[in-house]
Design a protein around this nucleic acid. Structure first.
Lengths: 252, 252
DNA sequence: CGATGGATATCGCAC
DNA sequence: GTGCGATGTCCATCG
């Protein structure tokens, strides 16, 4: 049974035979629609890695931008996928619907072979995609630039994203004694990796500036793990607790 | 128009009114089905961060394990989402379908308010989820354990995931001179972060073993970036090019 | 629970 | 294109 909406906004087939499913998927891809295929299938992937997935019931989503997703009934992440800019294709192989998605650079191929198809749908969607997100690292940076004393009294920001041989420092500035300060921002509780990152910047600036006094490194985050705290101490780096939003700050 | 499959495997409504949509979604959630709702909607999220998304046409997926996904026509990633173990709910507010997903620890809430509903579907899915994946870091480890000379002649692996105060070393072993070796594995080309990670392990082992000779650190990956290569040299660490699969290896 | 690090991570930006 | 770092990263594993 197939229902076709006016203006190709929606086309759905329940329990289509494989040939009908192939036709609906092919035409929908051609028309730039978003397609979902639900049914029992196997999945093979080959590319940066390779995988096989035995028979099971899944939902396959093909987006008009070339992305493909294979979702099971569990997990936020798809069990298999292709990134955008792939070419989708629907064919019949041995009388069965085969959905493939392929790209080059890197060479990657995804193949979904259906044993049975519960439903095929095609949606003509339009979206402005104007997501507004708050509580990011960018918000934390702005909070500090608006009130540098949140770092410490006398701190003066001089640059953001200042380049060093090791990468860009989130905020570069001077403390009340005129000493250079590198600030690394994290929107959430940090582990050892963030300490390593800050350490690399401070080392690079020490080398680069070859001043008489070492550069101070300050990690700014809501909180820090034990191991990271120990690493900070070992490397003579500092920590200032601060959240992106001004919410209650954790201890440590 | 609504179609109900035998055994509740499939229920689909095209252009349902909001009350019908609410009923279908509610009953499907209750029944443990996977639900998709396609239509024009706005999305509000509040939790670890917060976001708002203006009107647009999207596909909302509610999984029986509590995960929720809001997909636009672009991108591999959902524009909004909730992780598994959330509670889904469908209600009518001012005559409009409102789909909400909520969890605690951390407190997070997602609300999708529909202006219009193109289609609602509920699928009863079962999946064994027996994904077999190759080309992972684990494969790289096994490759080395099978033939330790891939690292160098005389290398003897003694332990995997050996704990240090800085974390677990992928492979711990000895070289032909009986000197301790820490091996860090990466399945793909590495940047500065991997060098920092290996450096932390080597430093920790130097401290921990306080032997007369320093611990050797070897990074194993298909290739390495310039900056990472420089960092390796600075810290006296080594690099061995190797892929998880035995594919052709890149230079440097 | 939190901590830690992998991932076919994806994504965006700068070079 | 590659390099680099952020992400409401997610996720499995381990303590």
């Amino acid at each position: 049974m197939t229902v076709v909406d006016e203006g190709l906004r929606l086309e759905t087939s329940q329990h289509p035979d494989h040939e009908t499913a192939r036709d609906v998927v092919s035409e929908a891809i051609e028309a730039g629609a978003l397609v979902t295929v639900v049914g029992r299938c196997t999945v093979d992937y080959e590319g940066r890695a390779s995988s096989t997935l035995g028979p099971g019931e899944r939902l396959v989503m093909l987006k008009p931008d070339g992305a493909a997703l294979v979702h099971t009934d569990e997990g936020q992440q798809p069990v298999n996928w292709q990134p955008p800019d792939c070419e989708h294709e629907a064919t019949l192989v041995d009388g069965r619907l085969l959905v493939e998605s392929h790209r080059e650079t890197p060479e990657e191929h995804l193949a979904v072979s259906f044993e049975s198809v519960l439903e095929v749908s095609a949606y003509g969607l339009t979206d402005e995609r104007d997501l507004s997100l708050e509580g990011t690292e960018e918000d934390l940076r702005q909070r500090i630039l608006d009130d540098p004393t949140l770092i410490e009294t006398g701190f003066v920001p001089l640059a953001t994203e200042r380049q060093t041989p090791a990468g860009a420092v989130d905020i570069y500035g001077e403390d009340g004694d005129g000493r250079a300060v590198a600030v690394e921002l994290k929107r959430r509780r940090v582990g050892p990796d963030a300490v390593g990152q800050l350490g690399r910047y401070v080392d690079a600036m020490d080398r680069d500036l070859h001043a008489d006094t070492d550069v101070r490194g300050i990690l700014v985050a809501p909180s820090v793990t034990d191991r990271a705290s120990r690493l900070l101490a070992e490397r003579g780096l500092e920590f200032v607790p601060l959240t992106p939003t001004g919410a209650a700050e954790c201890d440590t």
